[in-house]
Amino acid sequence: MRFEPLLEVKDLTVHFRSEEGLVEAVRGVSFNVGRNEILGLVGESGSGKSQTLLAIMGLIDSPNAVLSGSIRFEGQELMGLPRRALDRIRGKKIGMIFQDPMTSLTPVHTIGAQIVETLRAHEQIGRKAAKDRAVELIDAVGIPAPRSVADRYPHQLSGGMRQRAVIAMAMSCNPALLLADEPTTALDVTVQAQILDLIGKLREDFGSSVILVTHDLGVVAETADKVNVMYAGRIVEEGPKEAVFLQPRHPYSWGLFGSIPPFDGPRPARLSAIPGAPPKLSALPKGCSFRPRCPHAHDACLQEPPLAGPVGHRSACVLPDAAIEELAPRQEGAA
């Protein structure tokens, strides 16, 4: 196998024209996803993480959207690909699951029919054989009584079961890459744990890579290999999960970690919350977009800082390494 990442996103920009001016949803995002790798894309609402995912899948169809940059999947450029060519990749080589399993299944078709539809769109397979495959897939994602579930309608299943069905659909053609947009946010914690375990298992069983978009650092800690932290449309920190969690480099990441109350041990009297709110994407501050909320901001921050730092673990912050070392919060007790 040639050395080449499965997915290579370069300088991806997604802008929307709106009445309030240009909304800069994604601003020059670049990252790679290797084979059999789980990348966590973390950020709060408006950070551009979901738009990045939709752009990869070619699902941004607003007439007011302006996209630029390059998205190469298995060496093929996806940006600007005609619909017909795109449809040979979507659903077959790249699967996607969405946040709300309650609304992401068509209410008037059975679960089985919706999986069969995907299978038959991409493979030369008969109706009967496709149905059998669908039942196998439903079984593989851990839904009990798969044969009868195949004949049921979405509203007849619980949220957790629906999300499993969506995953079965996304995995039906054994895609090399799975895009998961907040796959557990709409679910209860006990069900969330089951779905996260399932996504981890898919990587082993199908050998797929995964991009997991989430706002929940806990979800990333459990599943991802690499982490990209996004803020206001840019990646502000990227690196292997261990590095990002043990020695976060960007002040925004510090703030994020500090905002989450601890699960055990002593409780802080106050959480070290990040002051203020994320900027409006139509009126971004000059320079580093985190500057207005950053306790370490200074004049140099009026220049947009590039992603820099040690190999493999970079952040978009002008603070020198020594300062980062000194200021970064440490996690205790973890390996």
Binding site: T190, G218, V220, E222, K241, E242, A334
Partner: peptide
Amino acid sequence: RVLREAMPEPRLHAKRPER
């Protein structure tokens, strides 16, 4: 206990304990 262990924690574990 189930609830507690199902909660994903934002920190690293040497080895993810079985839930």
